[in-house]
Structure formats: structure tokens, C-alpha cells
Design a binder for these strands. Structure first.
Lengths: 210, 210
DNA sequence: GCACACTACTCCACCCTGGAGTAGTGTCAA
DNA sequence: TTGACACTACTCCAGGGTGGAGTAGTGTGC
């Protein structure tokens, strides 16, 4: 049997909620999947076709204008079985791609300006995403949830997303403050401040808001 | 000119610190890059070859046993220029792949047991990575840092990594406690508890340790 | 001198990205 | 009523990236 990837199950899970067209799937993914499993639009178009080919979804045509039809995907019994089986298997460990941290890691190859501007740029991205998330949750509280019967789940995801974005924003503010105190970017090494920070890390003491 | 990817610059940045063999690069990546830019071993072997092809690194042979030679990669002047130029450009936004959250998102397609076991499995992964990170920082404090002159940078990354792992661990404990209170996984919707949580999210009040 | 764990890679099928391209749809206004 | 234009709803593809299997040399211990 051909292997399904985690992305396959991400789509299959959406199809288990209701039937969607590929276009709707890409939009729904932007509002939900994206926070835990970000995938490109082109792949979100391709994946349901694969599910059909493997028998985990089927497709029907619906009118979508005077000329156009749209393909609507729905889960099959085999798809539901596969999804349940996956939900009982072992998950992969979380992975973060954080380019600002990577660039900070090479701070000693450039000047303070470049590092600070990377942090500032990332922070404004993060603020935008924070605001987007807040708008979603406010809509839910205002009675405009697309799947109100799933809100007990969405709430737990929302808590995580808010706290993650907060952490990244606060860390980038913290890093900015620290770097502003540096006399230069390279060769500082184990300063007293660095030793304090590392000691606090191993002592499991709070740092960022301290 | 052929485009370099963020991964290219991640490797180029390591080569800017000192020359490495591909094997050493994979090991160094496990101890550093991995926390901000996780890449597969096979790709870490392939990328320096590409850098050589494009003139940003060059390779020399060094003996590595009675028979074997190893390829040692070092950055070129063009590589250093490219790295500095990249460090002044705009970073991509952070992206998280968190399969446990994805699975929780589909909690209503399975039972409490499956969801709780996903969370437990992820938590034990996270605890292991937390311990690994702590061991690294303790070694630095004990004077065993591979690049002591870079510790002022490493400390900022360590602060972020610890806080991120803590957040994920604490959130998964929080989610476990919440789910244990659920009478079932599906159809609960906007309970009083859910409304409280969402209200706290939009009010920017702490939740996880409350 | 042989077993065996570890070192140091290569290979490849397939997953996935992002950007370019294409054509139909709805709306407003000249 | 027609044409401009933003938006909808996709397809295509070169090339980046993954993960697991495979291979052969190296150092250690018995």
C-alpha cells in the first residue's frame, strides 16, 4: 500500500469534517492548518488528487459559474479508517524554522544594524500574525465560527498559537535589548552578562521579562 | 547567477566560522543549526558541493585514515560577500511544524486515549531535547564551548530554545489536563470553559500556568 | 585475526515549494 | 454594452529537500 504522508492526513482530516473543493481547502488551510502544519498552496491542490487516486477520497463535479465546474472532494470509508489509524500512531517531533535566529547565529559576520533590522522585520511579521489570530478568535466569540461544534478543540490550539507568537515577539524584543548593549558583534564571548544568562538558563529561571 | 537558498547560507555561515568536512558539518548542525534551521543529513552533505560548484566554497583533501581521504570545505571571498549580503536582506517569517497540534485538531475523529497518548509521546520527545540542550549549556558554563568567542550569541539562542521547549511542554501538559475533563472528544463546542479560555486569549491574560 | 560498533559517506524515489502562467467570473463605470 | 480590472480557481514545473537503504573504511576489544 502506498504510503500517506502527514500532509495527506492533514487534508484527510479536513475532508472528514466536510467535503471541500481544492480552492476551499487552500483557504481553510490558511485559517487553521497553517498554525501547526504550513504547506504551500500548490501542494494543497495536488494532495486531494492523490487521495482520490489511492481511494481515500472521491471527487464530484459541482457547477461554479455559467461555464466552470469545480471538483468537490469527500472522504471515503477507507479514508476515515486510515485517518483513525493514523491518529493512533506515533507523532513526529515538532520542528521550527526560525530564520531570524539563524541570522542572529551569524551576527558576528555583520554589524549590529543588520542584526537589529532582521529582528525588527521578523517582529513586525509576528505582530501581523498575532493580530490575524486575534481577529479569528474574536469572531468565534462573536458567534462567527465556521464549525462551532469544534470550538473546544480550536480553543486549545488558539492558546498555543497565541503563546507561541507572544514568546517569539518577546524573545525578539529581549534579543534586541541585549544586542543594543553589545559594543560590537564579534568576539565578546563569555561576558559577565552572558554568564548570567546561561546560568539562568540552567537554573530554569525566567529571563525574557526579567 | 544561480540562487542560493537559506540552507545554503546556513552552511556558508558555518564555513565562515572555520573549515569543516561534510561529516563535521552534519554533526555541528545537530548541535546548533538544528534549533533554528533543521535539515536532513543527506542535504547537509549535498549543500557544500553546491557551494563549491557556485564558487562560494572550495574543497581540499585531507588524510582520514590509512586509505581514506576526507573533503574539507572552506569559504571563499565570494562566499563571504554573499553571506554578508544575505545578512542584510529581509528574513522569512518563522514556521512551525507541530504534528501533535495537528492531531489534536482532529481529536473529534478519535477517542481521548489516542489524543492523550499523542500528547504524552510528544512531551517525552520534548523532555529529551530539553535535557540535550541543558547538557550543552552546562558544558559551556564548564568551559567546554567549541567557540568560546561566540558565546554571547549562543546565549541568546539558548534562551529562546529553552523557552520554546518549555512552552511546548507546558502547553502539552495544559492540553492534557483540559482533555481529561472532556466527557468525550466531539461536539462539545462552546462550553463555559471554552468561552473562558477564548476570552483569556483575546484579553491577553495568561492561561497555561493559571 | 575476527567480530563489531562506529565513521563517513552516496544514492534515489518521492515529497514539497514558489513562482509563473492561464482562463473564467463579477462589478463598476463610460 | 463593452471593456477594464480585480478576483477566483486553478495547472505546471524546475529544482530544493527528506529519509531510509546501502556501502565501505576505521578503531577497539577479546
Amino acid at each position: 500500500m502506498a504510503e500517506l504522508t502527514t500532509t495527506s492526513f492533514a487534508i484527510l482530516g479536513l475532508l472528514n469534517i466536510k467535503p471541500w473543493s481544492a480552492y476551499e481547502l487552500t483557504h481553510q488551510a490558511k485559517r487553521s492548518l497553517r498554525y501547526a502544519w504550513p504547506k504551500s498552496e500548490s501542494h494543497l491542490y495536488a494532495e486531494p488528487k492523490r487521495l482520490v487516486r489511492l481511494g481515500f477520497a472521491r471527487v464530484t463535479e459541482a457547477p461554479a459559474g455559467p461555464v466552470r465546474t469545480r471538483q468537490v472532494y469527500r472522504i471515503t470509508a477507507a479514508g476515515r479508517r486510515a485517518l483513525q489509524h493514523w491518529l493512533e500512531s506515533e507523532p513526529a517531533a515538532p520542528q521550527l524554522e526560525f530564520e531570524a535566529v539563524l541570522r542572529l547565529f551569524y551576527a558576528d559576520a555583520t554589524d549590529k544594524n543588520a542584526v537589529l533590522s532582521t529582528l525588527a522585520h521578523t517582529r513586525s511579521d509576528l505582530h501581523r500574525r498575532y493580530a490575524e489570530g486575534m481577529a479569528l478568535v474574536e469572531a468565534w466569540l462573536g458567534g462567527e465560527a465556521p464549525f462551532p461544534e469544534r470550538l473546544h478543540i480550536s480553543a486549545l490550539v488558539a492558546v498555543f498559537t497565541r503563546d507561541l507568537l507572544s514568546l517569539m515577539i518577546e524573545w525578539s524584543e529581549f534579543a534586541q535589548r541585549e544586542i543594543e548593549q553589545w559594543p560590537r558583534t564579534d568576539g565578546l564571548g563569555m561576558t559577565q552578562r552572558t554568564r548570567d544568562l546561561l546560568q539562568r538558563v540552567v537554573d530554569e529561571q525566567p529571563i525574557i521579562d526579567a
